[in-house]
Amino acid sequence: MRYFIIVCALLGVLHSSACDVCGGVSSNSSIGLFAATRFHMLGIQGGYRSFNTYLHEIRHSREQIFSTDIRFRFQLHRRIQLSGLLPYQFAVQQTDFGSNKIYGLGDLSLMSNFIVLNNRDTSGLTRNFLSFAIGVKTASGKNTIHSNPLKNIYPGTGSWDLLLLSNYTHQFNSKWGWQSEASVSVKGKDSYGYSFGNSYQLTSQAVLNLPVSSYRLISAFGFNGEYHEAAELDAEIPIIPNLNRGYVWAARAAVNLMGTNWLLSAYLQQPFLQNFNEGLTKQGLSAGISFNYLINK
C-alpha cells in the first residue's frame, strides 16, 4: 500500500492540444504526476479553455474550446512507458455578429518515457524520480490553410511535431513532494509551408498526498509557464511579424482521488501574467476533469 501511495506522488495527466495557439495558447504534452507509477492506464479527459481576442483594446471575439481526449499508457518495461492521446475538439468563436463553430478529431500524439532515476529509501518510498520522454504529434487531425482566420481554433495543426520532455520528482516525506516538468515542442510545417513556432513549457508544483477513507487524495498547487515562438511561413508572402508569439504564466491547482484501480482528476489553471500576439490575445481560465482506469502490470 505504501508503495502504491508513493508512486501516486505524481499525477499522470497526459494533456495536449493539437492547436498550438488557439486564440492564444495551449500547452505542450505533459506526463505529469503519475510518471512514477507502474500501471497501465486507459482514460478519458474533458477539457475547457477560453481566450479573448482584442482589436484596438476592445474585445473583438471570445474563443471557447471544449475537448475530449482518449488516452492510454502502456508499461512496456520497468523503465519504459508508451503513452498516446487522441483528442476530439469542439471550438466556438463568438463575435459581435455571431459565432463560428469548428469541430473534429485532433492530432494523435505518441510518446515514450524513459525512466533514468528512481531512488527509493528502505521503506520503499520513491525519493527521487527522473525521466526523459520523446514523442511525436502527428498531422492526423482536421486542419486548414493559414489564410483561414479560424485556423487557430481548428483541432489539428497539420504538422508533425517533435516532443521532448523531462520530469523530475522529489518526495520529502510520505505526504509532501515536489514535481517539475520541462518540455519542448519542435514544430514542423503543414502542407502549405506554415509552421506554428516552437513552444517551451515549465510546470512546477507542490504535491500533498493524504489518505481519505480507503482512497488517496492527491492535491497539487503550483504554476505553469509557456513561451511560444512566432509562427513562420515557408513562402514568399510574409505573415504578420510576431504572429502567435508570446508567453503566459498561470497558477495551477489539481486534485486527484485514487481508488485501487481508478483515478479521478480535476484541474484549474488561471493565467496571471501573459503577452500573446502583442497583447491582442489573452488566455482565460482552463479546466479539465478526467477518469483513468488503472491496470496493474
Binding site: Y54, L55, I58, H60, D96, F97
Partner: peptide, 15 residues
C-alpha cells in the same frame, strides 16, 4: 450587412 445586438460600451468591427 451584419448586425449585432450585443450590449456594450465599446465595439471593434473588422469585416
Amino acid at each position: 450587412t451584419k448586425s449585432s445586438s450585443q450590449h456594450a460600451e465599446s465595439y471593434a468591427f473588422h469585416e
